[in-house]
Structures are given as C-alpha cells and as structure tokens.
C-alpha cells in the first residue's frame, strides 16, 4: 500500500506546470488535492514517473459570480462551496451538493478541477457540470481550449482531456430558477449508488429547458434526453414529475454490481428524479435554500 516511486515537481506558475506536462520523455500527471490520485497511486493502479503538484498555483482558487454566470477556479476545494458565505443566485445547487462529497477531511483538499479530470460517473461535480451546461477551460503548450462538459466524459475514468492539458477554469454560464441534486448512498460520504440532478426554469407556469442528469447508472454522468422531452412544456406538478421519473427509468441501462442490481438502480433513479424535481420546484430560489 505504498505508492510507486516518482519524481515530484511543485509548479510555481501555470506556464511552468504546462511546460512540465508537455515533456515527451516522461509520463507526467497533475497532482491537485490528491484525494483520488493518491489512493490510486497507493493501490498502484497508476504509475506516473512525474507528479506535477499544482496545489499551490496562485489564482486558481475562486468562486466568482458575474454577469456571465459563475466562474470557478480549478483548484477550488469542495469545502469552499460548502462554506461559501453568500447565495449563488441560480447556482445554489453547487453549494447544496458540496457536503455530499466524501467526508470533511476529503473536502478540505479535494478540488473541482481534480474531480472533473478524474471523471467518476457518480461524482457530484461531474454530474452538475453536465446539468448546468458548464464549459471547462484547459491549457497546454498548444494554447487554451474550451470544452463542453456534455461530451467531456467518455467512459470509465476517461475524459477528452489530453495528458498534457491543465484545467484552469470551469464556467457555469446560466443560472437556473430551479435545480436540485438527490442521491442515495449507503453511508453519508460514500459515493452515491445513484444520484439524480435536475434543473429547469418556469415561464408562464410551464417548464422550460429541463435538464435531467443521472450518476451511478453508467461509467459517466448520463443526460436523460427522453425524460427531459417528457417534462418540457408541462406545468410543474407532481403528475409531470412522476412521468419524468418513469421516463428516466425506461431510458437508462444501469449496470449491476455488489451495491445494487440494475432493477434497484432503475427504481432508485425514478424515485430520486421525482424527489429532486419536487424539491427543485418547492425551493424558493430567491432566498437561500439549504435543503438536502
């Protein structure tokens, strides 16, 4: 249970980090909070030759609400959302979900950029990035590029990020009137067996532009487009929410494992989607909501 040997470099600037990652000679990996990478190293599931510690890079730890939505620095820790002192108008689902990520000593170090790059299909940040149409800015020796979260997650712990790219910023462009995340985990702090996140706006008493994203039902977060279509244009009532939950159950193909067989996951998805939609509808997004 000891990690394999590696060379360690602490990057003092983004440029230095990018230069270290760009080397063709060594297999380098970014080290941010270390709360996913270090377990994998200790279990010897990965053997990079070089760890580029970006943990102390200045200027990548911020939560900034502006006219163009919300910008979050890649090194922003989970607990910074949890303790964010003001409402995030339209993005509060991020604050509400943060305490569900692991345990306090994980949240004091783990970062949003690390979570997205790690790409666990039931990770709260991965689900919410897809839910809120986030874009991810990554830099490398070739310049910077903006990647849509929807499509970023390719498979088991696999994303479209290149090995030499460093995530620097996550942009959540659009506030939502109603959003919520519900999950079932065996114990508080465990990865969710199934997680359901929903977002929608209401115009003239009709649901507009709904998003329904599930975690724990595939190797990546899954956007349920058929269920979104069921909800689109309906009035935000229990009937519509139940129909959406049923549509999700029809749409997903969850795997079975020792935590739950496919049928259990399907039922959980149905119920969690209904619950999330109800809570999202009830929450008064003008004020602070600590539900969940």
């Amino acid at each position: 249970m000891k990690p394999p040997p590696f060379t360690y470099r602490r990057a003092a600037s983004i440029d230095e980090a990018v230069a270290l990652l760009a080397s063709d000679e060594v297999d380098a990996k970014v080290l941010a909070g270390g709360q996913s990478l270090t377990p994998m190293l200790n279990l010897r599931l990965t053997r990079p030759e070089l760890l580029v510690d970006v943990g102390r890079l200045p200027g990548l730890r911020y939560i900034r609400r502006g006219d163009d939505g919300l910008h979050v620095g890649a090194l922003t820790r989970h607990d910074q959302f949890e303790h964010y002192p003001a409402p995030l108008d339209g993005f509060d689902v991020l604050r509400e979900a943060a305490p569900l990520i692991g345990h306090h000593p994980i949240r004091t170090r783990g970062t949003i950029g690390g979570s997205l790059a790690h790409g666990d299909g039931s990770a709260e940040w991965c689900i919410l990035a897809v839910l809120l149409d986030a874009t991810i800015t990554a830099v490398s020796g070739r310049g910077s590029r903006i990647i849509e979260a929807d499509g970023f997650f390719e498979g088991l712990f696999t994303t479209t990020l290149e090995p030499d790219e460093l995530i620097v910023d996550i942009h959540f462009p659009r506030p939502r009137q109603h959003a919520a995340l519900e999950e079932f985990a065996r114990r508080h702090g465990d990865f969710a067996v199934v997680a359901a996140a929903v977002a929608f706006d209401v115009e003239h008493e009709r649901v507009t532009d709904p998003r329904i994203v599930l975690g724990g039902v595939a190797t990546t977060p899954v956007r349920c487009r058929a269920a979104e279509a069921v909800l689109d244009g309906e009035s935000p009532t229990d009937d519509a929410f139940e129909a959406a939950g049923r549509a999700v159950a029809d749409e997903i193909e969850p795997p079975g494992d020792l935590h739950a067989p496919p049928e259990v996951r399907r039922r959980m998805a149905d119920r969690l989607v209904r619950r999330a939609l109800r809570r999202a509808a009830d929450a008064n997004r003008e004020g602070v909501s600590h539900a969940g």
């Binding site: 990690p3 360690y8 602490r10 080290l31 270390g34 709360q35 270090t38 377990p39 200790n42 760890l51 510690d53 943990g55 306090h104 000593p105 994980i106 004091t108 170090r109």
Partner: peptide, 18 residues
C-alpha cells in the same frame, strides 16, 4: 487523520513534499 494548517486531512493521502 491529522491537522495540516489547522484542518483535518488524511495523512495517507498527502505526500511529504506537499
């Protein structure tokens, strides 16, 4: 679990240089 700069962390998930 130990405290690093006053905050609880898992000491098995932190490398010495950090």
């Amino acid at each position: 679990t130990v405290l690093v700069d006053g905050e609880a962390v898992r000491a098995c998930l932190v490398f010495a240089p950090q």
